[in-house]
Design a protein around this nucleic acid. Structure first.
Lengths: 158, 158
DNA sequence: ACATTTTAGTTGACCTATCAACTAAACTAT
DNA sequence: ATAGTTTAGTTGATAGGTCAACTAAAATGT
């Protein structure tokens, strides 16, 4: 018998549960909610701030564009996000001597403290989540995501 | 040698690429963009409208709450979304004789026409996406997503 | 050297998502 | 029956995402 449960075709009989993009959408939302609550509890910072922090990293000295290359974030959004982080005293900007268009970004002492506190917690969370998966699930989900990302960007099917 | 590439711990050396929740976030965004463009091309309807349409289904006669149970959508959002769909002539509401609080929802002829045109296209897209994956990837990604969803909702790790 | 294009970042307009307050109908329990 | 609670859906306030216009600096090409 060759017939697998997947690939699932969806129709009135097959519930939305089996539509891959739909499942990703749902799970993504729930993980986001979870991450936001988790961050709220551990360090009180917003998810977007945390993601940007991760990009700046402990060493700092990044720029807007570098961050954007890493996390594919809208530049307006990033600009405002960083402004918020500067206001909260998490990040400092200093001008780049060589290129006056861009600013070098680093964490403040406070930002660094929060970063250092949050990183291990987020690692634990990551391990917890991955720990729920079997070996092959955790291997396959990464490669599947890679392929889906490519598939979504190829214009083959558009 | 037992060491696998995964589960990936993230730190300054391990790029964000290996953070599972991050990857899901990225891939989700790209799939969304792809889906929206695809729908734009095939039937000109919005992704949110399509999702709701799928819930109403060809047979129709659903209610707000039934849809919400299926797709875990905010009720305010759904209310406005449906209003838009009614304005566009995709959906009709009629009052439920037995329960005056709720409305029965169905597709209009126009809505039905778009639904019938879009469904096979979206199926093709789904098959295309799943087709990029190996058998075990497509099997494992579904089970992994299921487990992650549970993990994100359990308060074990919160 | 100077006109053109590219890159960096900011800002404004708009659109969607999320949360909470609200009205109204229906159920529940005394 | 009727007070209290639950369920259905609407609406408003607000935060966050997306797109495009804009300024300024740097790179490019003649």
């Amino acid at each position: 018998m060759e017939t697998a449960i997947y690939p699932p075709e969806f129709d009135s009989d097959t519930p939305l549960q089996n539509v891959l993009t739909w499942r990703i959408h749902q799970v993504h939302n729930r993980l986001n909610v979870h991450a936001a609550k988790f961050l709220e509890k551990t360090s009180g910072i917003a998810l977007a701030h945390w993601r940007v922090m991760l990009c700046i990293g402990a060493d700092g000295n990044t720029t807007h564009s570098e961050i954007r290359r890493k996390i594919a974030m809208d530049k307006g959004q990033l600009s405002r996000c960083l402004k918020g982080m500067v206001d909260e005293g998490l990040v400092v900007t200093q001008e780049d001597a060589a290129d006056q268009r861009q600013q070098r970004l680093s964490l403040t002492k406070k930002g660094r403290r929060i970063f250092d506190k949050t990183l291990p917690e987020m690692r634990k969370r990551q391990s917890y989540l991955i720990g729920r998966l079997s070996k092959s699930e955790s291997r396959m989900i990464f490669s599947a995501l890679d392929k889906l990302e490519v598939a979504a960007q190829n214009h083959e099917f558009l």
